[in-house]
Design a protein around this nucleic acid. Sequence first.
DNA 1: TCTGGGGTCCTAGGACCC
DNA 2: TCTGGGGTCCTAGGACCC
Length: 437
Amino acid sequence: MDGVIQQPPLRMPVFALVDVNNFYVSCERVFDPKLDGKPVVVLSNNDGCAVARSNEVKALGVKMGTPWFKMQDLVKQHGIIGLSSNYTLYGDMSNRATAILRNYSPDIEVYSIDESFLRVETVAHLHGGKVAMGTAMKAQIRQWTGLPVCVGFGATKTQAKFANHLAKKHPEFGGVCDLTAMSNDARSAWMSKIDVGEVWGVGPRIGDRLNAMNVRTVQDLFATSPATLRAQFGVVMERTGNELRGTSCLALEDVAPAKKQIMASRSFGEMVTSLQGLSEAVSWHVDTAAAKLREQASTASAVYVFVQTNRFRADDPQYSGGTVIPLRDATDDTRELNAAALCALKRLFRPGYAYKKCGIMLMELSVKAQRQQTLFDDDQARTKSARVMAVMDSINRTWGRGTLRSAAIGNSQSWAMRSEKRSPRYTTAWDELPVAS
DNA sequence: TCTGGGGTCCTAGGACCC
DNA sequence: TCTGGGGTCCTAGGACCC
């Protein structure tokens, strides 16, 4: 009607969860089609554990986190292919998939490297409905990046997660499942078939306790009263139950909140026994974490450092320790953070141990622009520090991390992690581009 | 020989204050 | 012999997520 402002109808929220199947393995397969149909695992740093498994490997019963050396029998029997993780490649592929999703809905939360939530209630009709929209996203991501995804729709994030699980595990959905379009009977039937441990927010511990209460399936949890969940498990599980029943409690976080702490740590490729070796590794971690700190325009007021021996070698003498150094002034200067970290390390270090791992955490972060001035502030020094850091970040952005780094890190890096089976950085390094022949 | 790394939130309990 | 009540802040530990 002319002259009348039409109020949009109030719509209940609808969330979509788009998730790449076996993400790391799928990235590898995009560039090496010979991996298709073969059992493939991608290994954690140091080529330690399986962190991604192809369906063929899952079918062999290999669990997430299984150490590579413990699956050598299966590797020989079934020809499992193990690849070192290539986070540069995965990060770039993730950005490409996310860019496509942004064209479908402006309300998007990039939840992890391989999953995004979207609010779709105001845009799904543009694509002919939710399932049609999901199918279109799936096809476009496949065509433009080569990655396979599944899509789940629900009235809440927890429901969307569940719908995504159905889409992934049950071929009859064709990779796209809309829980909001199901009849109550159909929904309960599916929920009755799935283990309660699959619900988002139910981990191994709570899963066991729920089982002990005879809550075994998703439907059982659906039917458990909020009061019971509150009394037995607390507010988080109460919320999970409400979400499962369709009351949205978890909002879409379309702007990522700044991190409250930033951590960097690694196991060593070889054991480290000297203070010098540990110092180099700690400085390396400070470089990494401080770059992230500046990226989110924060400063840190404390640095935590920890060291550990190899807890899996029961016969070796064991030692682990950590300590926090508070800083007088909040800072984002790598050099100041590093000085504090090395001071902490000197306190922690005990000779005579074979160290396996160390790490640092930047804590008590605050927004740089709101930094508290202190009595002894030296503005000139601050400005100079900011310039040095800006140059360092800019060089490292262009030429790759570690191009310009603290001298404290050294060049030998005997502690560096193993990564012997890494694929090329096909999309981000000129000299590693794929070649068509 | 070989066992990942990076986060968040909640709760309970103690210290301390008035 | 009797021994308050309410509140905040901090920390450690436990649970979860990918």
